[in-house]
Design a protein around this nucleic acid. Structure first.
Lengths: 364, 364
DNA sequence: GAGCGGACTCGAAGCGCTTCGACGCCCGGT
DNA sequence: ACCGGGCGTCGAAGCGCTTCGAGTCCGCTC
């Protein structure tokens, strides 16, 4: 047959055409491709040749319909009005790469709130499994997925984690590490600018863990810990912090969970406090700003891209193999000390140095 | 029939079941859903009731197979080793939202380089159209899509734009606006820290436009314009800038296209120059850092989320309606003057030390 | 009152692939 | 030489939906 060699806009070849060209049955082509039944080397060669010549590529939806597997995973992002930190986007980037590498496709979606919508994506064959972020302690989405028996992996975690696969940043550990750092520098009154109230109320696990561990740990260290929910948005954060600085003049350091540090730094500047001479600042999530700021920001360094990658890999593994046990990965907090934290300022000269009622600092 | 009300893990209903329950033909249900043929009100009611009762939702792949349309658009991101700026992720976020809103799904993928892979996604029914970013002047991907007749929209543009729909940031305008600003401040020797060499060599349209316009415009304004390709990565950028500062001591201001400003600021600091007293800095893409830095960064404000949203909307419109003319949107450059640009320093008298840093204030 | 057109509705044929049961052939055992 | 058993291969039956052509029934016209 005289054919134009690679007429691009030509309709793509179907499996039936491959079969015809190779002179074999349609099903044989399928078995060559899937390897689910043995095929003789001779047939294999012929089929592969035909595939090569006709530049055949299987049709996604047809395959999904017949096999019941779409070879796609769905990733739900927090909706924009919630906290969308750069770290979330890094998760997505990591997951995207792992997905491509694993020969899967990645369906990205917002609308994360509704369990129904999420379950449906799997139930109606658009995806084989789901990755969820910003997980709550009691997360309806997770319950729904679990109940329906849909494979999923969390970035973050829920309250009860039995049998659930997740990758989570160790916010508890971050509190330990952060407070230890500040305690060592002699700070005795430290604020935690946590996720904003609505997320705490919703039960964002990370926020609750941060709060609880912060309070427990500061007590253990003999530090006065002030827990302050705080919006990420700079101007709102500014207000919250300004109020805090007024009501808690003792406070000489703050930890932020996200980019509340922006508003914090502005408020400190406005009140004439120098960082880190008068006030130490550090953030649990600082990338990718940490190095850009002046002074550069002490913080926890999370391998977020890797985390996203692992979540996707875990999900794909779950989809590919049968009966994989749940894997739970807690990414350890790694402190990177930069310029924004320093020794606690000495008590103001004017006031008589109050003797410390706290226990003397323990050595690590 | 006695049924458990909402046995979640039950297999989802199919259209045939709906038809049976409603006592109509399968095809009638389909027509009710698609509205492609008139259906009497009575039938409609019965079908809708059945759908409601059985909580029916159409099966994605089946629909895609039968109709040839997947109701999905594919978005290709620059691969990680290329420039992935926050702005790219904002595009993605915007596109994601528009996609959800338009009742489409969004397939996210890297691997952007290969025209074959990209065309295949559409050819094999995974997506109905494509959004491309980081477009080159001669972009093989675009040519391929066009040749195959696949619908697509660009974020960015190619050299020849005839009949191509795109949303692009007006980098040319940004050069005009930026140089005008600096000229007004009296600068007479200005550097452009453009995209890195590999992107220029690849023919990234934005980079070429920036370069050409920068050179033309600076000449027109009687400014000495120094074009410097520069990596985004801070340490590499640092080196490039350090060299520049050494070889071009006359230079008193720089424009960056991305976050080369990070390395730039570090290099300025290292060489003891104050911003903006000794050196003015501005960036074409500054969000979301601009406000965070000290001094805050003068730059162009792009509505990136909107741009992503529009690109997706345009594509969906193209898919939904027949014969829409190509739409080309050039997002205008809006200069936001902040603290990092100031009057050109007077010719060095004797290297007089600049005053202590001014205390920046929040502007309304 | 019979004929006609229009408005709906139905059944069936795919879309491109997976998968199951069946069949044919070739080889070894006896 | 005959039979049994695999290994390979084939054909056909779907997967759940869209869509086309072919009715069916009704109301209306003359």
């Amino acid at each position: 047959m005289a054919e134009l060699p690679n007429m691009a806009s030509t309709k793509p070849a179907t499996m039936a055409e491959i079969a015809e060209r190779a002179g074999v049955a349609l099903s044989t082509v399928s078995y060559v491709l899937s390897g689910k039944r043995p095929v003789s080397e001779k047939m294999r060669q012929r089929v592969m040749a035909a595939i090569e010549e006709m530049d055949y590529r299987p049709h996604g939806p047809a395959r999904a319909l017949a096999s019941g597997a779409s070879h796609t995973i769905a990733l739900f992002m927090p909706s924009p009005q919630w906290s969308v930190l750069p770290i979330h986007q890094t998760f997505v980037a990591g997951a995207t790469q792992a997905t491509s590498a694993g020969d899967y496709a990645l369906l990205l979606s917002t609308a994360a709130a509704d369990p129904e919508t999420i379950a449906e994506v799997v139930a109606r064959g658009r995806a084989d499994g789901v990755i969820l972020m910003e997980t709550l302690t009691h997360d309806m989405r997770v319950e729904r997925l679990r109940q329906d028996g849909h494979p999923f992996v969390l970035i973050g975690r829920t309250g009860a984690t039995d049998g659930i696969s997740y990758v989570d940043m160790d916010f508890g550990g971050a509190m330990d590490v952060g407070l230890a750092h500040l305690a060592r520098l002699g700070h005795t009154c430290v604020a935690l600018l946590n996720f904003p109230t609505d997320l705490l109320d919703a039960g964002l696990t990370a926020a609750l863990i941060a709060r609880d561990r912060f309070e427990r740990r500061s007590t253990e260290l003999g530090i006065r810990g002030i827990h302050v929910p705080c919006p990420h948005e700079p101007h709102e954060a500014f207000e919250v912090v300004a109020r805090l600085l007024r009501s808690e003049p003792e406070c000489t350091a703050a930890l932020t969970t996200g980019w509340q540090f922006t508003g914090l730094l502005a408020a400190l500047r406005a009140s004439g406090k120098q960082v880190p001479e008068d006030f130490s600042v550090m953030s649990v999530i600082a990338a990718p700003f940490a190095e850009m700021l002046t002074p550069s920001l002490t913080g926890i360094e999370w391998p977020a891209f890797e985390a996203g990658r692992m979540a996707a890999e875990m999900l794909i593994e779950q989809l590919t193999q049968r009966r994989v046990p749940a894997r739970q990965i807690l990414v350890p907090a790694e402190l990177v000390v930069r310029e924004s934290t320093g020794p606690a300022p000495r008590k103001r000269a004017s006031g008589s140095p109050t003797r410390s009622r706290r226990q003397p600092q323990r050595s690590p």
